[in-house]
Simulated scan of single mutants.
Amino acid sequence: MSGTLPGAVSGPREGDAFIRVVHSISRLCGVAAAGLLIAALLVTCHMIIVRSFLGQSTIWQTETVIYLTIGAICVGLPYVQMLRGHVNVDLIPLAMGPKLRLIWMVLILIVSIVVVAMIAWYSWEYLHQAWKRNWKSPTVWAPRIWFVWTAMPLGFGLLLLQLIADLWGQLRGYERPFWLEGK
């Protein structure tokens, strides 16, 4: 990784402490997500060995892989946003002038912030309910479910922080709208 993001304008971005801190947190989330996926892979290999070669049944492996993958997806959200790793259709922004493109980008970021904030809030409520009521998975293994659901408000909360940093970067001129060169 070269250290610069697509569409970054060189110069002042490096001097903005808020964006640097948020990007550091997002990178840490990317490392954590990769670690969770590696753990899921290892548990899957364990499950295959136990079932196929040892002829034993598995109780906890399938559910663990599912939970680790959910955790990796949620915790990896801010890292993917930081790298602009999502699908981007830029047909409309390409047809816009630079000022309209900035307005469109800011509008999209504000709507995204509102939606992600709502998801973070309601996932926090859901986590709190699971904790308070001591919900468990309805399986033989029956782990407490709040531990897994912690990934949702954490991931979406950190995605919210990354979106705010993106909005700040757009408003301060540290990045180009839609990471496209000006006309």
Rank of each mutant, 00 (worst) to 15 (best):
V148I: 06
I25T: 02
P153F: 10
S123E: 06
Q170R: 04
F53R: 12
I110W: 06
M152A: 11
S137W: 04
M152C: 13
V111F: 09
L154D: 01
V111S: 10
R51C: 07
L159S: 12
I110F: 10
L77P: 15
L107G: 10
L37E: 08
S24G: 15
P143M: 10
V116D: 11
A95S: 15
I145M: 09
A130N: 07
G55C: 07
G71A: 15
Y79I: 00
F178P: 01
L163S: 03
Y79E: 04
P12Q: 09
A95M: 09
Y122Q: 04
A72M: 08
L41Q: 01
M96P: 11
I70W: 01
P98E: 15
V50S: 06
A130F: 06
E14N: 06
Y79C: 01
E63S: 04
L94I: 05
G3F: 07
C74N: 01
Q81E: 13
A130T: 08
R13M: 13
Q56N: 15
L91A: 08
M82V: 01
P177M: 15
W179Q: 15
L36S: 00
L109K: 07
M1N: 11
I70S: 04
Q81W: 10
P153W: 13
V140H: 05
T64F: 02
K132R: 05
A151S: 14
W179A: 15
R172M: 15
P6R: 11
I119V: 09
M47C: 12
F147R: 05
G35M: 01
H86P: 00
W149Y: 07
V75A: 11
K132T: 10
H46E: 07
P93H: 06
A130Y: 04
P93C: 09
Y122D: 07
S123A: 08
M47S: 14
W121R: 04
L161I: 13
P6V: 13
S57V: 12
T150R: 02
R172S: 12
F53P: 07
H128P: 00
L107E: 09
A8V: 12
L83A: 06
G71I: 03
G55N: 12
I119D: 03
L100V: 05
T150P: 02
I73N: 01
P143V: 09
K136Q: 11
A34N: 03
V9N: 07
L158G: 04
K99L: 10
H46I: 13
V80A: 14
V9T: 12
R176S: 10
W141E: 05
W124C: 03
D90V: 07
Y67I: 04
I70A: 12
V148C: 07
G35E: 01
P12H: 11
A95V: 05
R172C: 09
K136F: 04
L37Y: 14
P98I: 07
T4M: 07
I48V: 13
L37H: 06
S137G: 10
V75L: 13
H86Q: 03
W135D: 05
E175T: 13
P143T: 04
I103K: 14
L180V: 15
S2L: 00
T62L: 05
L158R: 01
P12N: 10
P177T: 15
T150V: 12
A34F: 10
Q162K: 01
R172P: 00
C45I: 11
L107K: 04
A165T: 01
V22Y: 06
V43S: 09
T58Q: 11
Y79Q: 02
S52A: 08
I66M: 14
K99T: 10
A34Q: 02
